[in-house]
Design a binder for these strands. Sequence first.
DNA 1: AAACTATACGAACGGTCGTATTATTAGTTT
DNA 2: AAACTAATAATACGACCGTTCGTATAGTTT
Lengths: 208, 208
Amino acid sequence: MEKVDGRLARGDQTRRAVLRRAVDIASVDGLEGLSIGRLATELGISKSGLFAHFGSKEELQLATVRAARRIYADNVVVPAYEIEPGLGRVWALSRHWLDYSRSRVFPGGCFFQKVSHEFSAREGAVHEYLAAVHQEWMDLIETAVAEAVQRGELADDPVQLAFDLNAYYEAANLASILHNDENGYDRARQAVRIRLASAVVPGTPVPW
Amino acid sequence: MEKVDGRLARGDQTRRAVLRRAVDIASVDGLEGLSIGRLATELGISKSGLFAHFGSKEELQLATVRAARRIYADNVVVPAYEIEPGLGRVWALSRHWLDYSRSRVFPGGCFFQKVSHEFSAREGAVHEYLAAVHQEWMDLIETAVAEAVQRGELADDPVQLAFDLNAYYEAANLASILHNDENGYDRARQAVRIRLASAVVPGTPVPW
DNA sequence: AAACTATACGAACGGTCGTATTATTAGTTT
DNA sequence: AAACTAATAATACGACCGTTCGTATAGTTT
């Protein structure tokens, strides 16, 4: 992938540019709406040259999901992990997720919401990978909650609480794109606050 | 649509059969994955004959969404409305929604989850209609909650509570299809119970 | 300088897409 | 039985799909 001196080979620059565009397209039109011809035209390169980088449509889709995962991690997970483990981090995770959706890091809203639904009922490598990423994400929330429980800041079932929080995120994302307004984000933030408050151990300082 | 004597004209029988198949396909592969040629082949009729019923792809998609809305209403709204207004109806709405998803009334899970995400970031009549149906559904939950509030069974903001409940439904639906297990439904049911319990006016008999 | 590899290109493949036009069949009405 | 209408089919169209091929160019290695 990378040369020893840190510069990118020519081919990797192209690949990178392709994937940056691909994630944006897919967040709006899905991974099937992401056609190779369209992608090539938008980037001003040849269809065959682009295709050679991936070898198949499915490989392009997988590479696109991997690229989106990196962007997602940078925008949601990394900033939340700058906060100390505990209730503060759980709250940060919620804030950053909602900001990630609201600020349209992907123009179509949350990339994974979009394509997870698209491939939810299909078979194949893309479905498998998306299911794994979803599980990875749920595990991450559960871990953050479990840390807060272990520190005596929250008292609740981490799996249940993670389910609830993630449900608020997703509902806000869909509502905001579908109706092109931002009300859902305030609703979700409120929902998170209420839900966390219901699990907070009395006396714990609260981050909101 | 219907003849005076109640029997269906020949064309309407075809139309009905087409739409029944169309909603199933779309719940798995989306409204774009629903191609006219495929639909015709699966039904053993000609592409052109099928096409003549709708006149355009978009009209077929709209008709499919309308057909799905009817099925949705029959499976979720109607049975919940057999329960008296109040907390009981809110609970029934939740139960029937989760059953509707779990029993795979549509093979790909909730039809509207699927296609609402597919068209969330697009423009056109299908998007508009799906947004309207979503709003209609949220209004319906809000009304059910508001009735319970008015009867003194619940004390909460109907809009907020409706948002939360709907979020649980959708999260359970996605999780169950993506991972092909039913755990999400128990999580969601539990989430609904907890959330309703937090809003229940003390002394109110509880339906679960 | 020669050999080799990486990258990109244009052209073409068989298929499927949505759509339009024209023809044929089946049902109803007179 | 003839005439008319509604429903279905046959055929064809141009556009685009993912994919393959042969080829040209640029960079690197020997």
